[in-house]
Design a binder for these strands. Structure first.
Lengths: 211, 211
DNA sequence: ACATTCTTGTTGCATTTGCAACAAGAATAC
DNA sequence: GTATTCTTGTTGCAAATGCAACAAGAATGT
């Protein structure tokens, strides 16, 4: 999982960024963007985090996806969104890089280094996104809650090169991520503990037991 | 959903393609590639179709994803695949375009038009892929079989600009795509018909009723 | 033309899951 | 420092779902 360019450095050198790109700060709960098909805007989280939210018919809102540091998002990744009921809301004070997809076609006036770096670095961010989406699809495809939890824990464990790992979010969020009922998930985690599959060390810290 | 380049024309002009790219034909059931992390190969289906298959522990194989004409696939979209148990198998006689991701960095010797077109057109194919993955995630996130079916039918209907539409694959494949048991899905379709939500016209042809 | 494989359709039953509701502890806001 | 919100944990129950098994029709291969 090598990085084709170092986005940390990149973000730190944004002082004289080009005229095709802007950086904006958002307060907690501010709307960052509403998804409108063919608007072709792209966003990169530089600081903070935000949620892609869908309003369904009944009026209740649901978190479709969460964006953390250096995640890419935008209408361009959601070409079918007929009712324009998708929007992105800051979960906390956040800094967002914004630009139009036509950046690939039109160079900026200054022909700046920043523009160039973005063009080189963006594909890697998108590939990471695709990989993340594929992983989530595989998890959501598992038929039982047990399989979903164990498969996800296995991935976390492998990412961490250790049987012990920390969840990247709360248990409530985990249920959302796996699209299962939270109480049913808690029940299954309890059974997995009893059956000796996992051990709960701390609030969000688990160990996968070999059997 | 505009096209940034016409891949049909593109594929028809492959006569003097560049030295960075190759086109290969595969017979039905032939293995096109095995996913190996960091191999960085990309593939585009020019003709035919293929399945991404996972061997699980028990030895039984499961279709993770299906690739049709002009779909892009490759290890590069699956960065976490520790056991290398993923491979792509041709469902029928297929023609596949293959190249390494470094095509972005290294121009070919001839500096050919083909190479240039690929660089311009590929991002659009990838964005379409991301959009498709996002749609599937939303469907898989629905909690009931009824919601999954109705949401998917709504998308097909909107794509077709009509309440009536044809499934792009068999009912058996639909159950796989939505990751639900086929018999449970058939039962639900029956209830949806009885409740007046849908009408079945033909084998794979349905109409969404307004109520 | 026949055999074989694939797809649709159906049902009973056990199991899994979502939902509702509640309580206690942790974290955060003011 | 207190109130408020968020998170974890638990349970009973009804509803949804997967599984197994079977049959008939359609499509495909030779």
């Amino acid at each position: 999982m090598k990085n084709f360019f170092n986005i940390e450095d990149f973000a730190n050198n944004l002082i004289n960024y080009c005229d095709k790109v802007q950086i904006k700060e958002f307060e907690k709960n501010e709307i960052i963007t509403t998804y409108i098909v063919n608007r072709n805007m792209l966003f990169i989280v530089l600081e903070g985090s935000s949620d892609l939210i869908r309003y369904d018919f009944n009026g209740n809102q649901m978190v479709v996806e969460r964006f953390n540091k250096f995640d890419v998002f935008g209408e361009i990744f959601y070409r079918i969104n007929i009712n324009n009921e998708l929007f992105v809301k800051a979960r906390e004070k956040s800094k967002i890089l914004m630009f139009n997809y036509d950046i690939f076609e039109k160079r900026c006036k200054k022909n700046c280094n920043f523009h160039e770096q973005l063009l080189v670095g963006l594909p890697n961010l998108v590939l990471t996104k695709v990989s993340d989406l594929n992983i989530r699809i595989e998890l959501l495809s598992k038929k039982t809650i047990r399989d979903k939890i164990l498969s996800y824990f296995k991935i976390l464990s492998e990412n961490n090169f250790s049987k012990t790992f920390t969840l990247p979010f709360s248990l409530t969020d985990l249920a959302d991520y796996l699209s299962i009922d939270r109480s049913a998930m808690m029940r299954e985690i309890k059974i997995l503990k009893e059956d000796g599959f996992i051990k709960k060390l701390d609030k969000n810290r688990f160990t996968l037991l070999s059997q």
